[in-house]
Amino acid sequence: MNDYLSGLGSLVERYDVLGAFWTNIQLTFWGALIALVLGTVLALMRISPIASLRWVGATYVNILRNTPLTIIMTFMVMGVWTALQLQLADTFESNFFRLAVVGLAVYHAAFVCESIRSGVNTVPLGQAEAARAIGLSFLPAARLIILPQAFRGAIAPLGNTLIALLKNSTVAAAASVSWETASTMKTMIEFNPNYLWGIFAMFALGYVILVIPIGVLTTWLSQRLAVQR
């Protein structure tokens, strides 16, 4: 048993498992940041008074949300980089990393948009009417009155999207980010099949440890920041 654990321990160092997890955390962080900005813009479009903007927002969400992430990631490499020759960074590695971040962001932005929209639905119509009645036009009313309340009502669904994003960051493997967790795990198992169960358990546990605090935090925040009516 001790031999097994110490053997597993040496594998962790040899294959830089912590570094792999760190890569996924970074992918998640940047992906979430861009997805949040893009998703907010999309949500604004979807609730705007301008019909053509609403159409663009709805079309984006329906296409991106219904496309498998693996296809988006593969497209980022084969389509955006290979075919369109769009280079996002000088080094090979950070180029793939950034392509993966963009792929994760454009995909999850659709879910962020819908989460925020569900938050908008928690804001009574009277809030928007009162905002308009004092002379605020759409954007200031959205920025000052609607979105601040909508975000508070959307914390739980946004947390779910973040959890999904963290786990989906392993699909970055499809965008040639070969040093992330899923790829690392596969390599480790390939060359050390006698540690198969231990390696599986280690990676699964790693994600559980990362995800649980997000769930706890968002539940706590959504209760704490709930708008009293």
């Binding site: 009574p124 009277g126 809030q127 009417e129 009162a130 004092i134 708008v227 009293q228 009516r229």
Partner: peptide, 10 residues
């Protein structure tokens, strides 16, 4: 404008 349901910014 004053509304029936007040509509203060919550």
């Amino acid at each position: 404008m004053v509304f029936q349901s007040f509509n203060l910014f919550a």
